[in-house]
Design a protein around this nucleic acid. Structure first.
Lengths: 337, 337
DNA sequence: TTGTACGCGTTATCAA
DNA sequence: TTGATAACGCGTACAA
């Protein structure tokens, strides 16, 4: 039985050097692919490394280089499908590039909380931060506090000149709206996301653009909170006014709740009212009626964010991505009048 | 405009010492709450710290203490609701205790992949690991390779003597089964999770226990993959045999897909067949018919894991938690015959 | 109660 | 191509 106190010290670069019969500095050069090193020396060193199962101490390396090979994720989402999928993409892409990932969930979106979070991440020496904080205010606070570190936001706020990217939410929302229009609907409501959310704004804009283009009347949006529960209550409320034949919900969860509310109020979807959502969550195709929605590739978004961030960190040319395509998935919940 | 090259060096412990007129060691003592230090000295130091906005360099600290104040999460799940919610709980609890969190998604469950992942985390000097790798084989590999670090698994494999915890899956599954029995069903199928998954085994055992207790016939389980798509195809298949009146699906996603498959086959839920799921995902209450299921508190699971892990790391008494309660949520999809 | 000297494991600099 | 030496910022041991 080995106890903690007996635990042997891990081999250091000097142990490797001793075994290989070189200086520790030569070992360091091998580790960092330094060009000028004789092949046979390199072989000896690599040999010693594998014999000792040596692994460089990342803390020591971070100390001297003041680079941690670590990326931070600053997240202000609770566990929704989209952001969660993007985070997986971020982590995978980062690991592929040899970076580890430190995740931090914002407890609040107050400027102080954001400041603390960034400071914490900076204390951890992360080389860059990916921000998944879809609230507009987080975005502004971040810009205001002049973070001394490269960072990328996954959502594009309007008028942002910083580096950021996103799927083309506006186009997707517009496609959803146009789909409803093409089915013959002219009185289309929008069940929007919360006031402060960038995505909510984009999707609402797409909705407004679509209607305006078709010279159709717009309605003041209903402000939701992304949850299915809210959608349900909205459905019950909307059942009392019947001045519409279709609803575009800003996400699938609200759309599913909405259909439930309609169902409980005797409104049949799509017979009486058509519904379309956004995100294409895994159950969208399986609810009754199956939910028309707009698909987007969340993990790819995360991967792109990492590529941009790493380019910034390394001082390389920042890649230009076109907007990530969204795909309309027409299903049963939206039908012609 | 300040460029990277001009970026000032962050203040070090010596800068603080100089400003406070003490030695860097005294500053260190203040930072670590050393008992013997004169209040006025401490005040001077704290003052200097705030003037300089000094923050200790974590890499340097990690180097000298060989503790990183960082926890690792080893995850082998793709983005399902349960594990994702638990991860959020882990992160929050860890941050509250002053630990940062490094997440690593397993690309595969092969022994090599697991070994690499653990080594990577150990290179990062994490002080402990929370394992969310619900596959039995991951569990075994981990036990076999004698990890030189404290670790906790979120799932309890049968016969495990290591530290681990989980909600009482067996009891929950049994409650689900008994619910169906109490509704008058006697021919109850089980749509199980994948062979290798600990949760799948537990839920199946609960199913079997429930039926055996009631002296009812058991059926060979159908092995699914947790996805709604699989549930759908299972529904279409099962529609061809009508030797059952109820199905217990091992998770909500499969249950929802299953109901879809039944619907497409002309089988009405719950009129012809009752269905019950597991997990209580956010849409469960809103699909049609609303899905009976078993609720569990995933974030709390994560928090408990952190508490256990930290106790191990600190050499404290490891807290004993009772099994996390599961709660039956009876809804429309399961009805009496 | 405080300070000095040293070492943690690595990379950078300069000389050989 | 290689090696000696000096940092990096902090905590620990010991001395004052």
């Amino acid at each position: 039985m080995s106890t903690a106190s007996e635990r042997a010290r891990l081999p250091s670069i000097r142990d490797v050097a001793r075994l290989a019969g070189v200086s520790h500095q030569t070992v360091s050069r091998v580790l960092n692919d330094h060009p000028s090193i004789r092949p046979e020396t390199k072989a000896k060193v690599l040999d010693a490394i594998s014999v000792l199962d040596y692994r460089p101490n990342l803390a020591a390396r971070a100390l001297v280089t003041s680079k941690s090979n670590m990326l931070g994720i600053l997240s202000a989402t609770i566990g929704e499908f989209g952001p969660t999928s993007s985070i997986a993409g971020i982590e995978d892409a980062a690991r592929e590039e040899g970076y580890s990932v430190s995740t931090l969930n914002l407890p609040a979106t107050s400027p102080e909380a954001i400041g603390n979070a960034v400071r914490q991440l900076s204390r951890e020496q992360v080389d860059g931060i990916v921000v998944l904080a879809p609230q507009v205010r987080v975005f502004h606070v971040l810009r205001g506090m002049s973070v001394d570190m490269p960072f990328v936001t996954l959502q594009t706020a309007s008028g942002s000149d910083g580096v950021s990217l996103s799927a083309d939410q506006v186009a997707g929302a517009r496609a959803a709206t146009e789909h409803l229009i093409s089915l013959g609907h002219s009185d289309i409501l929008h069940l929007a996301g919360p006031q402060d959310w960038i995505e909510a704004e984009s999707r609402m804009r797409g909705y407004l653009d679509g209607l305006r283009e078709a010279d159709l009347p717009t309605f003041p949006p209903i402000r939701g909170d992304w949850t299915a529960d809210f959608g349900y209550f909205a459905g019950k409320e909307l059942a009392l006014r019947r001045d519409f034949t279709a609803v575009f919900a800003a996400n699938d969860l609200m759309a599913i709740g909405l259909m439930h509310g309609f169902r409980d109020s005797g409104i049949r979807v799509p017979h009486d009212v058509s519904v379309i959502g956004f995100d294409d969550i895994p159950v969208a195709a399986h609810v009754a009626p199956s939910l028309s929605t707009v698909h987007q590739d969340f993990p790819e978004l995360g991967r792109r964010a990492v590529r941009i961030l790493l380019a910034q960190i390394r001082g390389e040319q920042v890649p230009e991505f076109g907007p990530l395509q969204t795909i309309l998935r027409a299903r049963e919940s939206a039908a012609s009048r």
